[in-house]
Amino acid sequence: MHKNSRIYVAGHRGMVGSAITRCLHNKGYHNVITRTSSELDLRNQAAVADFFAEEKPDYVFLAAAKVGGIWANNIYRADFLYDNLLIEANIIHSAYRHQVDKLLFLGSSCIYPKLAPQPLKEEYLLSGYLEPTNEPYAIAKIAGIKLCEAYRSQYGCNFISAMPTNLYGPNDNYDLQGSHVLPALIRKFHEAKIENQPFVEVWGTGSPRREFLHADDLADACVFLMETYNDEAFVNIGTGEDVTIRALAELVKETVGYEGELRWNTDKPDGTPRKLMDVSRLHQLGWQHRIELTEGIAATYQDFLRNQEAYV
């Protein structure tokens, strides 16, 4: 990428897309193209095709997606599959039709089988059954990977894919019905602190282990891959380190300054027992994360405090 390349960030208002946009600006890329969902419905094939014909982007970061936590994934199964299939298919096909130089598709660690060996190596894709609660989202993301591989194989497109681990950071979703575990914990503990609640309920047993990557680190990795990586094989992006949900909850509780009790609702699902990414491929390429979890959660809580009205 050149500093004046026309770079389209799909999903620039979301946590991932906004982090990529910030990273590009910080690195001196000044020709970044964006559209809000009200300006461009990415599920509309004709509208996406018209956008590509008009703007003619050289590079595309495909960070747009319908996302959510266990509850949202399990309840809105049709929406998660349908919307994500349309978004990725429309953008990838238009990128091919309008001869985009390079596209980066962002998937998710949920593409891996529920009981895959740990840590999760890229070659474990499609080696077993998916976690049922987020299967529609995972299938959509797997389809995106395969679309990139197919357009590369059939048409020679330089389309690459990256699979981030669990993410957190500015512009996260704090809706308790639709959010992921870390932002949900931040909001729960903050509201319990303000309202002097005696306890906070947390879903599951606390035993599953999860890996967390700050969105700014992910963005840096994405720009790094766009600048340096051109192979077909997709790349995991993560820290290579994980914690139990119980330890995460204790860390968020301490960061927020909540002094009440933790109560675990074991009637609620745990999800996959463990999801730790093998990031050796990314490390060999020359990239490693920089923001550690304690530091990242503290910064994210301060961002939450500054932007509460927008987030909740």
Rank of each mutant, 00 (worst) to 15 (best):
residue 3 K to W: 01
residue 4 N to D: 12
residue 11 G to S: 06
residue 16 V to L: 05
residue 18 S to A: 15
residue 20 I to F: 09
residue 24 L to D: 08
residue 26 N to S: 14
residue 26 N to T: 07
residue 27 K to L: 07
residue 28 G to M: 02
residue 29 Y to H: 12
residue 42 L to W: 08
residue 46 A to D: 13
residue 47 A to T: 01
residue 51 F to G: 14
residue 52 F to A: 10
residue 55 E to S: 12
residue 61 F to K: 10
residue 67 V to G: 11
residue 72 A to S: 13
residue 78 A to T: 13
residue 81 L to V: 07
residue 82 Y to E: 12
residue 82 Y to C: 12
residue 83 D to E: 11
residue 85 L to D: 09
residue 86 L to S: 15
residue 90 N to C: 04
residue 92 I to A: 15
residue 93 H to F: 06
residue 94 S to T: 11
residue 97 R to T: 15
residue 99 Q to N: 15
residue 99 Q to V: 14
residue 99 Q to Y: 14
residue 101 D to H: 14
residue 103 L to M: 12
residue 104 L to R: 01
residue 106 L to A: 07
residue 121 K to Q: 15
residue 122 E to H: 05
residue 131 E to Q: 14
residue 133 T to G: 06
residue 139 I to T: 12
residue 139 I to H: 03
residue 142 I to V: 10
residue 150 A to Y: 13
residue 152 R to K: 14
residue 155 Y to V: 08
residue 157 C to A: 13
residue 165 T to Y: 10
residue 166 N to C: 04
residue 168 Y to M: 03
residue 170 P to D: 08
residue 171 N to H: 15
residue 173 N to Y: 05
residue 176 L to E: 05
residue 176 L to T: 05
residue 180 H to R: 13
residue 181 V to N: 10
residue 184 A to V: 03
residue 187 R to H: 14
residue 194 I to H: 00
residue 195 E to F: 09
residue 196 N to V: 02
residue 215 A to L: 04
residue 219 A to G: 06
residue 220 D to P: 00
residue 222 C to R: 00
residue 223 V to C: 09
residue 228 T to L: 08
residue 229 Y to M: 03
residue 230 N to C: 05
residue 236 N to K: 04
residue 237 I to W: 05
residue 240 G to K: 04
residue 242 D to A: 11
residue 244 T to Y: 09
residue 246 R to V: 08
residue 253 K to Y: 07
residue 253 K to T: 11
residue 259 E to W: 00
residue 263 R to I: 11
residue 278 D to M: 06
residue 280 S to M: 08
residue 284 Q to I: 02
residue 285 L to Q: 09
residue 285 L to F: 07
residue 288 Q to E: 04
residue 291 I to Q: 05
residue 292 E to K: 02
residue 292 E to L: 03
residue 293 L to Y: 03
residue 294 T to S: 11
residue 298 A to I: 07
residue 299 A to I: 01
residue 299 A to E: 08
residue 299 A to H: 03
residue 306 R to T: 05
residue 306 R to S: 10
residue 307 N to C: 06
